[in-house]
Design a protein around this nucleic acid. Structure first.
Lengths: 221, 221
DNA sequence: TTTGCTATATATAACCA
DNA sequence: TTGGTTATATATAGCAA
């Protein structure tokens, strides 16, 4: 029996913790549902047990709620510390989400009204209409998402290419420095840029290079 | 006073509904926190009021939890069990389309059979079923796409960071090289490293260091 | 709107089966 | 694991300020 109020800290006993988790989790989900029903709120609840098991509830679509959440929390974010492309992405999702919501609502209403006095054949036709409508929304949504993915991939390819080039440059310079330290004159070194063979260069990790690069400056830092 | 147990249905009175929302919401969030603490669970809770206001809580990072949720529900989904990378590209589109088609067909057939002898109420229920089915397909599809987008963005952020760092290194080298090209001997140049004035270098020194420590590509992939 | 205030309703800790 | 059973702790509906 609950003779004492418990402390809100991690329960030591494993069994007790599991039992409590199970019971309180149910309670929490029940409360969430009740709140949703009573007050017409939209709720998403995600719970991972300590063992990694997933429990979730959402009053409507989990995805839509999550997207809405992303939108809202981004809006309250004064300055996007994030690069442009990520901002574009999210707002894009928001637009899609709204579109989807609007159209779905419209279709549902349409269907609800029509249903009042129609026969089977008409119902079948309506079903078709709804399917078509949903399919069109889905298609649009897909197109936007795929466009975004495509853009991201393109950008990524550019970045990778740029990085590769930069790394190569870095390696060349690195090589140059080695040559210098071996006593080459500045002139010959300059001329041999990119031609001096660097034995350790090929499979050297970039981090190694970076260490070398950073070394001469370490005094100054 | 609570003389009677209330029905779990939307509260008619607006004021009462708002008050209840406020109170129950707090209760819900409190319970969520307690469960998280007591049982070492990870919890994300998103609530939108009927007026669209957002309230949220998460025991750790909302984004991480959402990601985890996406992954989990994808894993438990009988359709998509392949790793993400194989789902990428245009084949992804085809697969999803097929999924959608299959399920829609199934639901249509189901609906067709049932339609023969049912009344309006049953039809409404069926409508709900269809909606749910479609919504589940859409949800799965969305989750996959969003997961992919998310991964792409993460990778992109890494690339940008790497890129920045490389550029900074390149600038330093440029500086060094410029000094060299002005005709210093190797020895004097080496000695003067770190003393040569690099106009853009000072205010980057600190961030350079941190970047060096945390660079994602340090493993050389 | 948002607070307190109770009297009840509900949740649940500890225990048992 | 899961599902009861209490005795208590907590939440909250209705009201008032």
């Amino acid at each position: 029996m609950v003779r004492q109020k418990i402390q809100i800290k991690k329960i030591d006993n494993l069994t007790a913790r599991q039992v409590t988790f199970s019971k309180r989790r149910r309670g929490l989900f029940k409360k969430a549902q009740e709140l949703s029903t009573l007050c017409d709120a939209e709720i998403a609840l995600i719970v991972f047990s300590a063992t990694g098991k997933l429990f979730d509830y959402s009053s409507s679509s989990m995805m839509q709620l999550i997207q809405r959440h992303n939108m809202q929390s981004e809006k309250s974010n004064k300055f996007g510390q994030q690069p442009l492309h990520t901002q574009m992405g999210s707002s894009n999702h928001g637009m899609i989400s709204k579109e989807l919501t609007d159209l779905t609502t419209e279709l549902k209403q349409l269907m609800g009204e029509e249903l009042q006095g129609l026969g089977m054949n008409d119902l079948m036709k309506l079903e078709k209409m709804v399917e078509t409508g949903l399919s069109r929304v889905g298609k649009t949504k897909n197109e936007k998402l795929f466009t975004e993915i495509s853009k991201l991939k393109t950008r990524q390819a550019e970045l990778i290419e740029e990085n590769e080039w930069l790394k190569q440059q870095a390696e060349k310079f690195d090589c140059t420095r080695n040559a210098m330290e071996q006593g080459s004159s500045v002139e010959s070194m300059t001329n041999s840029l990119g031609l001096v063979h660097c034995p350790e260069e090929e499979d050297r990790a970039v981090s190694d290079t970076s260490l070398k690069l950073g070394l001469p400056f370490s005094n100054g830092n």
